[in-house]
Design a protein around this nucleic acid. Structure first.
Ligand code: DCP
Ligand code: MG
Length: 1164
DNA sequence: ATCCTCCCCTAC
DNA sequence: TAAGGTAGGGGAGGAT
């Protein structure tokens, strides 16, 4: 299994990652980091206006005096950035809009430098703009020496373009790892055998050491051996052994300086400044190369050639429909989607069930449990075979194709007899079994089978948790105990026997029922906890059931391989192997401390327990969604940057869709980029696969939660650019939203309000406590204390102010527990949400006819401006509404948002970019090569921890303990069952002692948690808790200028300003702004331009306001469809007021810019 | 200590 | 040809 540990161990990687190249004494210049996003807009504009190619075309005959120069302008200059750019490019030079650490500037042009920058650029040629101007004047490249900004020679090194040295550096191994920045410090010498290397292809100089901790490089990247799909058993490691000529090496081979430089410059420029026309691609302007892989080919050239095949174009990213097409065919995508849908539906159903069932009996602490783990046998394959009975006894696999790299999603048991496994590549499978029958996917059929499966399962009396489309957990403890006639605690032979018999019977019936409905076999594992059920399932398969009874647990589990345990696979398995552990029973030889120190506190303890058959996890504990993402790592082959950016745009569209679908917005955007490893061939073994890649993540904090496609896309593209990767090397791209907040359309709940024409400033003064300096950041949200809102919402159920509240959703009684645990209350909206979500999903999935869940039922319509009690809402109608309206309605019922306030309270200060760090992994663990060749493991959803809730989080320190405590007293009041008595009784003496000790320990912990205030009765719903109070006070603080808030360095970063604006806008959105505020903002931005000299910031802020306005406008347009004309009118007025305000601000900024003698800026 | 961020790992 | 997605647990290590 681990036999093929690759040389690419993490330890080795770490070292390489931090590697800088050897000859630091040499002439290399340090690759510099990108300049941050601050000036993104300004530079982008230049880009849009002046494409290098155009510039050159427009200025023929100019002497190419800057040939070989790659310039970067820092700060503001005279002549302007724009002009310098023009001068340089038109005279044959290259120009960088960004410093990205990959593409290397040869000269940095600046009028002056801050000390910090001075340090940052210490190793560069830093020269004054005059050098450019005068060189042009002179018609030749003047010696830069006389134009130094930093006028002493000792730290500025000279970069020699002309020696072969430059290009030879291209071979230097290093990583584009963020860690390198400080890691390089102490790890500089390690070079290592050609593992992950830095992309030098696009730069003339190898990126070098970074000791500048403040700089912001790619947030991270990791080497990733990606072609793990190639199973070791195949032996053919063709790809790995392949040593194709990479462009880097090609560059080396060309030793003429000038061409190299030219190449470099162009390439660098093109990375950052993609030609525009590429947005309508189709025609690859690139090289009419011969069909062969020329040694010196750039990745772009290669891709262009590759894509000249129309079929290639069609299945790759070149196809405009690519995203949808890919997702339509991606099994993994379907699995994920299905899972999310099922989770939402089941959660809703469970909620409903538990609420309608009166007084559900609680289980006693030490009682026995009976858990079923139900799972289709070779699901995809079975469904397909069912349609093709003639294949029944043949080895069958489900896959898209029969080529080497086609992945087998599922194979039947005859195929498994040959050693074939799910997830294996076709090549390997065919080697094992040339007769393998390959059948295509049939996603709708899987859905259908699953629907029947779940309908059978939901018919059982018990708690259900979905694991996946073909797999579920059912806790049937209640009915078993009933059948046994005991409380599940005593050890009574008779009771236990009857309980077990009942469990077996339920399982058998279930299997029969599903088999009958679907024609496919399921197996059932039965055990006293999730772990036991799961491992029992293994033995049950195929087409059987197995009850792992208490007295057999230890032996059975002990003889499993560690990797058979859920949550243990390649990596953890290897760590255990290092500890001398192969079988689960071996784990018992290790002390808890040992395990913890080797694997971490949670994992260590968990394994210690697993080894003894213990698993305290409860069935059905579902948590709230924490992230939404979209990612594609297949078929990514770009020729131009513009294509890449367009793709990112599409991907963001997808993300947007999902955010809306889930009724959330997010505050943190993370972009994930896979880039071909330097030593990876241009063509991976897998058709259009990503091959071996380095992975880079970077996240940014948005000032305010958003789901707007354009904003997301803008940021994502900006991140992508910041890496400056050569588009041809991109292999995978993804975007993820975290720090989610429930969607709240501001217009919705306020829309009945009248537009205030008279700017009577509402109590804003009554805000004496608003010491601007102490405002950590303006809060948005809390509309509950806007008089405007409360009136509008007054008749809606307030989830805050009542401990028991009948809500009737989808026609079923819905009652909050009387012991109003704040945590429960806090979670409520999420539950409601999940119902909305699940409903909208089942609608979307067109699984209309008869929903398996009891959720949807026809009803009356909702949607008039004056919304009825929530109980009257008809889910179907609701889900059919346009997204904006739907979210509005939801927002209407949404708990007034202390949520947003507290979420903000914990939001980290936007960091310029978290400083890089080195993770000194112990060099001894080198499990990393390729992942496992092992049977697909039993499904592992065993670990559901109660983790943080995003939405409600008391912001004060006091609340942490309280949260813990209140969770203890939440619905499942009982302590988690740890070990049942009979199980304990069955244990050998020594192990029992251990377990008892463990239990004692756990109980101590729980007690200490419980002791905190709220053991019994948590403080009553506290809309006025500390967080809310803070929110109230600060909410209305118009985060506008003239206030130290804005001018203090600390609070003037872009995200903060954005957030401030958002807050401002949401406070006065429907009313229109106050003139004085607008004026203040204008003045402030004017100062930003004139004093801070940060035009970008001013422009960005202004644009943000523009976004807010137009975004709201979009919402309004849709949502007012059914509103009164009066409302519409108010909106129109408000909109106009805001537009005017925007105009004023823009004008002000523009004026300031012009005062500085700079070309006018453009607002988006 | 505890939190937060950035990853890795796992599952289907 | 081929469709290598996605969410959540949790560890390491810096920030507080
Ligand atoms: N690497 C994988 C693993 C699974 N699946 C899909 C196809 C499977 O049919 C389905 C269910 O996964 P299981 O792990 O339950 O595997 P099977 O149901 O195919 O086989 P069995 O449950 O009998 O082991 O998920 C996949 O596409 N790729
Ligand atoms: Mg299965």
């Amino acid at each position: 299994m681990g036999s093929l540990h690759e040389t690419n161990s993490s330890a080795v990687r770490k070292r390489i990652e931090s590697h800088t190249f050897d000859n630091e004494e040499g002439e290399e210049y340090e690759a510099s980091r990108f300049g941050g996003f601050g000036d993104y807009m300004r530079r982008k504009k230049i880009k849009l206006q002046n494409l290098d190619a155009e510039i050159r075309a427009l200025s023929p005959g100019k002497p190419p005096i800057f040939r070989g120069v790659v310039a970067y302008v820092n700060g503001y200059t005279q002549p302007s950035l724009n002009d310098i750019h023009n001068l340089i490019v038109s005279h044959g030079g290259g120009f960088l809009q960004y410093l990205d650490g990959k593409t290397v500037a040869t000269h940095i042009i600046a009028s002056s430098l801050t000390l910090k920058k001075r340090e940052e650029f210490r190793r560069y040629r830093i020269i004054k703009p005059a050098w450019v101007v005068e060189s042009v004047k002179a018609g030749r490249l003047l010696p830069w020496d006389s134009y130094r900004v930093v006028d002493e020679g000792h730290s500025q090194k000279v970069l020699r373009f002309d020696s072969g040295r430059l290009s030879s550096q291209a071979n230097i191994q290093k990583r584009g790892y963020k860690d390198q920045s400080d890691a390089s410090w102490y790890t500089s010498q390690l070079k290592d055998q050609g593992r992950v290397t830095e992309d030098v292809g696009s730069s003339a100089t190898a990126p070098a050491t970074h000791d500048d901790a403040t700089s912001s490089l790619p947030a991270s990247s990791t080497g990733k051996e990606s072609d793990y799909g190639e199973f070791p058993s195949m032996g053919s490691l063709a790809e790995d052994q392949d040593t194709p000529t990479t462009p880097k090496q090609a560059v080396v081979s060309v030793e003429e300086d000038s061409p190299i430089l030219e190449n470099t410059a162009e390439q660098s420029a093109s990375v950052v400044e993609p030609p525009l026309e590429e947005t309508a691609p189709v025609e690859m302007p690139l090289l009419r190369e011969p069909i062969s892989v020329k040694p010196g080919m750039t990745p772009e050239e290669y891709n262009a050639q590759l894509l000249s095949d129309p079929r290639m174009r069609n299945s790759s990213v070149m196809n405009p429909e690519f995203v949808q097409q890919f997702y339509r065919e991606s099994r993994l995508h379907h699995l994920s989607t299905w899972k999310a849908e099922l989770k939402a539906q089941l959660q809703a159903a469970t909620q409903e069930k538990s609420q309608s069932q009166t007084a559900q009996k609680k289980r006693l602490p030490g009682a026995r449990r009976y858990i079923l783990h139900v799972d289709f046998d070779s699901f995809f394959a079975a469904v397909s075979v069912h349609k093709r009975p003639e294949l029944a006894d043949k080895p069958v696999a489900v896959a898209h194709g029969t080529g080497n790299g086609s992945e087998i999603a599922s194979c039947n048991y005859p195929a498994r007899a040959y050693g074939i496994k799910n997830g294996m590549w076709m090549k390997g499978a065919l080697q094992m079994c040339p007769d393998l029958q390959v059948v295509p996917y049939d996603f709708p059929a899987y859905e259908e089978a699953s629907r029947k499966f779940y309908s059978s399962i939901l018919a059982i009396e018990g708690v259900v948790q979905s694991v996946s489309i073909d797999e579920a957990l059912v806790d049937i403890t209640m009915q078993c105990l009933e059948a046994g006639g005991s409380d599940g605690r005593g050890i009574s032979e008779g009771s236990i026997y009857r309980e077990q018999a009942r469990a077996d019977e339920v399982a058998a019936k279930l299997r029969a029922s599903i088999k009958e409905k679907t024609g496919c076999a399921v197996s059932v594992g039965i055990g006293g906890n999730i772990l036991q059920a799961k491992v029992a399932l293994r033995k049950a398969k195929p087409a059987g059931q197995f009850h792992l009874k208490p007295d057999a647990v230890l032996e059975f589990i002990g003889n499993l391989t560690v990797q058979d345990l859920p949550g243990v696979a390649y990596s953890i398995g290897a760590k255990l192997e290092e500890l001398g552990v192969t079988y689960v029973k071996d784990i018992r030889e290790l002390s808890r401390e040992k395990l913890v120190s080797a694997l971490g506190p949670k994992t260590g303890v968990k394994l210690w327990e697993y080894a003894r058959g213990i698993d305290r996890t409860e069935v059905g504990t579902e948590t709230m969604r924490k992230s939404v993402s979209a990612e594609i790592n297949w078929g990514i082959r770009f020729v131009t940057q513009a294509q890449a950016e367009e793709f990112v745009y599409n991907l963001c569209g997808e993300l947007h869709r999902r955010l809306v679908e889930n009724l959330v917005k997010g505050k943190q955007l993370t972009m994930r980029i896979m880039r071909r490893s330097a030593d990876a061939p241009l063509e991976p073994v897998k058709h259009l696969g990503h091959g071996k890649c380095d992975v880079f993540n970077k996240s940014i904090i948005l000032g305010v939660a958003t789901n707007a496609k354009d904003i997301i896309a803008k940021e994502a593209v900006s991140i992508l650019r910041s890496f400056g990767f050569s588009p041809g090397d991109l292999r995978g791209l993804g975007v993820q939203m975290t720090k989610l907040e429930p969607v709240k359309s501001m217009q919705s709940s306020q829309q009945q309000l009248n537009f205030k024409t008279s700017p009577v400033r509402p109590k804003r003064e009554p805000n004496p406590a608003t010491d601007p300096d102490e405002v950590d950041s303006p809060r948005k949200g809390d509309r509950s204390n806007l008089s405007t809102v409360s009136s509008a919402v007054s008749h809606a159920p307030s989830l805050n102010d009542s401990t028991q509240k009948p809500l009737n959703l989808a026609g079923t009684q819905f009652i909050l527990p009387s012991q109003a645990d704040p945590e429960v209350v806090a979670e409520l909206p999420g539950d409601i949400r999940s119902r909305f979500v699940s409903m909208s999903k089942s609608q979307a999935a067109k699984t209309r006819s008869e929903s398996p869940t009891p959720l949807s039922r026809p009803g009356t319509a909702a949607g008039s401006v004056e919304l009825p009690p929530q109980s009257q809402l008809d889910p179907d109608t609701l889900s059919a509404l346009p997204e904006d309206v739907r979210s509005e309605i939801l927002a209407y019922y949404e708990r007034p948002s202390t949520t947003a306030v507290s979420a903000l309270a914990v939001a980290p200060r936007p960091q310029p970019s978290s400083s890089s760090r080195l993770r000194p992994t112990t060099p001894t663990k080198k499990r990393r090569g390729r992942p496992p060749l092992k049977a697909s493991k039993a499904p592992g959803n065993a670990t559901l921890t109660q983790s943080n809730f995003i939405r409600i989080r008391p912001s004060s320190a006091a609340s942490s303990a309280e949260r813990t405590a209140s969770r203890q007293s939440s619905p499942q009041i009982n302590e988690p069952v740890e070990v049942s008595e009979d199980f304990l009784a069955a244990l050998p003496e020594d192990i029992r002692r251990e377990v008892l000790e463990e239990q004692k320990r756990i109980r101590m912990q729980q007690r200490s948690a419980l002791n905190i205030p709220a053991t019994r009765k948590p403080p009553q719903p506290k809309p006025s808790g500390p967080a809310a109070a803070v929110g109230q006070k600060r909410l209305r603080l118009p985060p506008l200028p003239e206030r130290p808030t804005f001018t203090s360095k600390k609070l003037s970063t872009l995200p903060e300003l954005r957030e401030a604006l958002s807050s401002w806008y949401s406070s006065f959105g429907t009313d229109g702004p106050f003139a004085e505020d607008v004026e203040a903002l204008s003045k402030y931005l004017r100062r930003v331009v004139l004093e801070e000299k940060d035009i970008d910031k001013a422009v960005s802020v202004t644009d943000w306001l523009g976004w807010l306005i137009s975004d709201a406008r979009e919402n309004t347009k849709e949502s007012t469809a059914s509103s009164t004309s009066e409302t519409k009118d108010a909106h129109a007025q408000s909109y106009q007021a805001w537009t005017t305000a925007l105009d004023m601000v823009q004008e002000s900024v523009q004026a300031a810019v012009q005062e500085r003698g700079l070309p006018p800026v453009e607002f988006s």
